[in-house]
Every structure is written in structure tokens, then in C-alpha cells.
Nucleic acid binder design. Structure first.
Lengths: 400, 400
DNA sequence: GACCTAAGTTCACGATTTGTAGGAAGTCCG
DNA sequence: CGGACTTCCTACAAATCGTGAACTTAGGTC
């Protein structure tokens, strides 16, 4: 009731930049009196602060309001295959401190990841010198399926994790509230709030890297399905009976447009000769750069765009989104060079009607946005709850 | 505010069968006092009525409440390629009258469809002898993309309609409120409320007939996308570079599992010899029945199940639904015979995690449920508005 | 310095929800 | 047959919350 309206106002102030009370009234269709009331409360609590004023032809100037960037802090962590990255942000999402821990082993034990995340949490808080009580929460992004927000059971093929209760494990080591989510979803969230997805309510953020995934955004919030494993776009069949995918099935999109799949296809077309380059990324760039000189490379890249276009078209036809945002490291490399061709390929496979309504863009935030997206999880909760639920400044991270 | 609570209570009563005030309090998490208040209002207005009582061990018996079936009536219309079907229901969704008008021409003019729908509306109301003012509204299902609920611009390839403002055209001929929606969506709605989808909140109702489509249900209500053309599952690419589809693209699912596509594939595999049988349906049944004797038929059907399984798997991976319901005339014919094989085929293409969480079922309502689903549109509005918005008994259908 | 415009605030009112207590409708047991 | 008991439903007062109208504040203009 009242909380709901607080939430609406706070969200409006946060999402639509500095606003005056007057504009707030219009945006939220609440009466000026209510706005004044609730804003007064939020000001008293310190969540919101005044930020200059704007002349308004002739009359009293409007006082602008914004969410106080230092009202609280949020932490975002990314648990990837090769590293754990922890970042501290203020509420304006400015990075204040970063801690990175490389992971050398191929299939790291969950305990190691937990240790690094907690260590990083301690480190970034210590570096900036804020009190733990000021940290509203920590979001943790992990490359796998995350079941339910309760214990956050994680299934991650690439990490070798099966039913790891990551949320519970982390919560046991700190008093700071923990939220765990899929990395694709958090990156999607970051792009929707601060990147190429701004303003859209129905969108898909497609991530093409070594693997392929997507975050589905419906009605402004990300869609998770029954048990939060929605968005596995990479393992939709696009060539029935086609190439074997690492998921075990045949003809998955990932086997054709994921970087690994592209390099394998190149090697196959190149008479068994792999693409030169130290790591996967170098090799992928090598293929892209040799398009002008190598017919094999040209064909492989052209096909990749075709497959990707068909994959996008499937999203367009099924979801009728207003925007599709392409990200992921190899997706961006492709998109930077071939966006027009990609759009054309989508048009070839999509229905005219929904195709005319979708715009296809590139991610604007870098790869590190995964952690930032994770950090938006506690922010989202702050907005949803319409302000802070006070928390005793407790334990940052228990020694393990 | 109050209306919202009325809506919650009314919806609960409608969806969860006869309920006592006591149970309502629990379900809606409203106080007993509020429930009593609002139920009193609803009883006074006649939307809700008492329906017997149930002993409650020892104490005062609970009085059951239900939505009064004769509080109002709703009409559902189906505009198909070969017929216009109009049905009148009471609020318990019992059919009270039916009117069917065959369409002989291949691409009927929109005006003809409008004429039949209005004529049917008149006919069913006249047959039962109720006052037009008692009709809460008419839902119209049409085989095509319906844009926006305002004017309801219809794009229907199969009917040859391009940007037909069907909603506005119908509204001009009657004072009864009109709602237009896609036929796949309305059938999906019917199955979700009264058929195989009962109880599920995230589901997909897949329709396989001559063409192929799907209704996506997310969080209990059907998902429409930016401009209500979501759910075009039939035109997702499943065989990259494969068979030409009537939509113009290549390798669409519809070209493989739609009845038309199946028959074409049979003819191709049969050395150009088409399947015997007068119309499409007879021919399709013919193919199914000859599986035991004809190797060609066996292969075609087996492949069809495979393609359909992959198409289902795509839905499973992307949406993580809790249920998939297969309907449509040819889909049902296939499903009745090969549901276990289909489930197995889905398992081959889907990820283990989401596959384990989905159940695959057959539609329980017949093909005529399209009109019934359309009739749920006004019911849905009644529930959303928490009761009746009184309307002067006006014009049923103006002469044209 | 008076007047004008527009923004923000205060206050009383109406609408609603919610505890709480009491009434109603049965069963059970002597 | 009737009192005690259980359970469901409702009436009343108290508290909460949003809204409209009047009022105050802040700056510009002549």
C-alpha cells in the first residue's frame, strides 16, 4: 500500500535521473500531496537527496531529487571459469574498488570460489574504508543455472558443479545479504539499466562467447521460467541432426555460432588445419581478420552470420521483442564488423511484422558488466522495498 | 485499491471453484472482515451467489460461494479459414447456443466475416432469449496476428487480410463490447483454464494443425510481446537452409511438422505420389494409418516426431515451462499415437535440467475450444475489474 | 517593492482495511 | 432436550492512507 507507492517513487527517481517532485507526480500519477509526503520521508531517511534546481519559466524553481549515491553501497561478484571478480559500487553504480582472484584449476571446488568471493568482499570494503553496515547486499553472478532465490542451488557444467548451494554457503560466511543469479541474466540486467537496453521493456540480451546464452526481459524484468533456467538460447536446435554440441544434443545454435563452434567449423573447412593463435580469442580474431584473404575464413564467417541471424529471428518470432542486444566477447567482435549483414540475415528468417518492430543493437558495456549487473540485484531489492530495511552492522566475512 | 481487492476475491472464487469466506481469507491474505465486506457487496450485486455449505468438524458450516453462472453471458466467436463459429456461454462456460456459417471462398473479405459474426451474435442471443444487456462481451478469435487491443488490427496471411481493423469494424455494428485475439492464444487460454493447463503458471500451449503456432503463458497470463505477435513458434528455424516455408523463409518448423508440410514430405519421399484421401485431414490420417505397412509413411512420421521433439525442446530450453500442452488437429492425431516417442525426442534435444521439470500433455478440449477461449476474454475482464460495469442494454447488432 | 507564476506543503476529509468482540449455526455430550 | 463448545461470519470503532483545496514559498518582472 504505502510501501508500494514508496517503491514506485524511489524507482522513478533512480531510473529516470534527477526529477522534481512535480515531474514525479506526473510520472507516477500520484497526487502532489502524496509525492510531497513520501519524498519527505525518503529525504529524512537519507535515501534521497536534493540535487540543485531547475528554473521553470517564471515561477518557483523545481528542486531536483536523486537517490543519494552514498546512502549505501552494493557489491557485485562474478564467479567465472578463470577468475573471481568482486567490485564495490555506490548507488550511482560508480566502481569504488575491485578485487580479482585468478582461478588456475580447470574445475574449481565450490569452496574455493566461496573463499575468493568472501575474501574479495572483505578486501573491497576494507580498501574503501566503509562500515559493513553500509553495504546493502552482494549480488553474485555465476556461469550456470541458478535454482530458486532461497538457497540458490547452482548447476554449472563448465565449472563442474552439480547442485551446489552457493547462496547458503556464502550466507554462512557473512551477514551481508546475498543474491545469486546467472551471469547472462546479470549482464542482461546491466545492459537494460545502463547500456543498450535502456528504455526497452521487452527485450532479449543475447550473449555469444565461447558458449551462447540469453537473458529474456519481459515487461521490464527478466523472465526466469518455473525453475529459473529460462534463456538457454544456445541450446536450441537450429540445424536438425547437425553438429554435435557439448551439451550432448545435435544441431544446437551454440555449436555453430559459439566461438568454440566457429573455430571447429573453420578447422573442418580448412582441411583439419586449426586457426592460428594462442588462445581461443586470438584464434577467433585471426579468422575474422583473414576474411579478406582467405576464402575459407570468409565462408565460415558468412555462415556464422547466417546462423546467428536465424537464431535471432527465432527470438524475434517467438517473443516479438522491441530490442535485441548482442553481447559476449565473440558476439561483439562479430557485431562490430557485420551488424548490417546480421540484421539482413535476421530479416531473411523472421516474419515481416515482428521484424519491423525490433531493433538490433550491440552491448554498450564491457565484459566486466557481469559484476556490475550482479551488483544491481541488491539495488533492485532496495527499489522494490521502497527504501532501506535497517540492518545491524554485523559480520563482514567470517574466517573460514 | 478497493477494486483491486474485489478483483482478487472474485478471481479466487471463479478460478478455485466454490470457496467459503474463510478459505478466501487465507487464499487472498485479506482479513476476514474485508472478505466479509467485499463478498457482501458482490452478493448484493448478484455476481456471486451462495452454493450450499460444507460441514466443518463440529462448528458452524462454511457457506460456499461461487460466481453466479447466470449473472451474465459471454459470446465467443471463431473466425477461421473455412467457417465462422459463434457460441453463447454462461459464466460457468456452459454452451447455451451455437451458430456456424461456412465460408466457401478461399480468401473471404473481412466484411463477410464481420457480417457472419454479427449475424451469429444475434442468432445465439435470440435462440436463448436473453436480453442483450446481459451479454458482458464478445471475444473474437482469428487466425492471425492481432495488434493492440484498441482497434485490433488483424494481419492474417491465410485469410489474405492485411491490416484489417476487425475490432473497430465489429464495434461499429454492435454495442456489445468486443475483444479480438489470436486463435492460438484463445485456445491456449481455454486449455489453461479448463483443460490440460489447469494449475500451471508457466506453460506453452503448442498448436499443430495445417500451420503451427503456440501460446506462451508466463506467470499465469499469456505473453504477447511488444506488439502482440509473440508465439510464432511455427516460423522458428529448425533446419537451417531447409525446406521452403510458405512464410518465405527456409527451414521453419511449420514446414516440417505442420500437416501440409508433413504431406508434402510424404509425397516427396513417395516418389511424387501424394497421400490418398480427399482433404488434408483424411490424407494425414491415411499416412498415420499406413505406418505399419508402408516404410515411407513410417519414416515420414518418425521424422515428424523428431522435428516436433526438437521444436518442443527449444521451448523447454528457452522458457523453462512447467508444462507443454500439445493441441491442434494434426498435433492431437500425432500425440494420441506417439506421445511417449515425442517425450523421448524432446529429451534428446533439451537440457537435462529443464527437461526434468516439464511435463508434456495433450490438449483436453476439442477443436471448438477456440471459441470458448475467445469467450473467456470478457470473463477475464469481468474478473480483472472485480465485477460488472453496468451497461445500458443497447444495440445487439446493427443491420448492415 | 508590488505583482505574477509555478512549485511545494499543510490540513481536513473521505475511503478502506483491520482487530476485536459479539452473534449465528451447527455438533457433541449428558 | 438443552447446555457447552467449536467454528464461521459480521458489526463497530480505531487507525491508516491518499486526495483536493487552500496556503506558503521562491524566484522573476516591471
Amino acid at each position: 500500500m504505502r510501501r508500494s507507492n514508496r517503491s514506485v517513487i524511489l524507482t522513478s527517481i533512480y531510473r529516470d535521473g534527477p526529477l522534481s517532485r512535480y515531474e514525479l507526480g506526473h510520472q507516477t500519477s500520484l497526487s502532489a500531496a502524496s509525492v510531497s509526503n513520501l519524498v519527505g520521508e525518503l529525504l529524512d531517511e537519507g535515501v534521497v537527496e536534493e540535487a540543485g534546481s531547475v528554473e521553470s519559466d517564471g515561477g518557483r524553481p523545481r528542486v531536483l531529487l536523486r537517490v543519494a549515491p552514498t546512502f549505501g553501497y552494493v557489491v557485485g561478484a562474478e564467479v567465472g571459469e578463470t577468475r573471481v571478480r568482486v567490485e564495490l559500487f555506490d548507488l550511482a553504480m560508480k566502481v569504488l574498488a575491485t578485487a580479482v582472484y585468478p582461478i588456475e584449476t580447470a574445475k574449481p571446488a565450490p569452496e574455493l570460489a566461496v573463499k575468493y568471493v568472501l575474501q574479495g568482499l572483505n578486501a573491497v570494503i576494507g580498501e574503501v574504508g566503509i562500515s559493513p553496515g553500509q553495504v546493502l547486499g552482494m549480488g553474485v553472478a555465476v556461469a550456470g543455472v541458478v535454482e530458486g532465490p532461497a538457497d540458490a542451488i547452482v548447476h554449472a557444467q563448465t565449472l563442474g558443479w552439480d547442485a551446489v548451494p552457493l547462496g547458503a554457503m556464502l550466507a554462512a560466511g557473512t551477514d551481508i545479504p546475498i543474491q545469486v543469479d546467472n551471469g547472462a541474466n546479470t549482464l542482461g540486467q546491466a545492459e537494460m539499466w545502463f547500456g543498450a537496453g535502456r528504455g526497452a521493456t521487452d527485450a532479449v540480451v543475447a550473449l555469444v562467447g565461447s558458449g551462447v546464452g540469453a537473458a529474456l526481459v519481459t515487461g521490464g524484468s527478466s523472465y526466469r521460467g518455473t525453475r529459473s533456467s529460462a534463456g538457454e538460447w544456445g541450446h536450441t536446435t537450429i540445424v536438425y541432426g547437425g553438429r554435435k554440441c557439448r551439451c550432448g544434443a545435435e544441431g544446437c545454435l551454440e555449436a555453430y555460432v559459439g566461438a568454440e563452434g566457429v573455430l571447429e567449423r573453420f578447422q573442418l573447412a580448412n582441411g583439419g588445419q586449426p586457426a592460428p593463435g594462442g588462445d581461443e580469442e586470438a584464434a577467433f580474431i585471426g579468422v575474422l581478420d583473414s576474411v579478406g584473404t582467405s576464402e575459407v575464413a570468409a565462408k565460415v564467417v558468412e555462415d556464422t552470420i547466417g546462423y546467428l541471424g536465424a537464431g535471432f529471428a527465432n527470438l524475434v518470432n517467438l517473443f516479438n521483442p522491441e530490442r535485441i542486444v548482442l553481447g559476449g566477447w565473440s558476439g561483439l567482435l562479430l557485431g562490430e564488423r557485420y551488424l548490417p549483414q546480421l540484421r539482413e540475415a535476421v530479416g531473411k528468417h523472421a516474419l515481416r511484422q515482428p521484424y519491423a518492430q525490433v531493433s538490433i543493437e550491440l552491448c554498450e558495456l564491457g565484459r566486466d558488466a557481469v559484476a556490475m549487473g550482479a551488483a544491481t540485484l541488491p539495488v533492485l531489492r532496495l527499489l522494490r522495498e521502497g527504501g532501506a530495511t535497517p540492518r545491524e552492522p554485523g559480520l563482514v566475512a567470517r574466517a573460514r
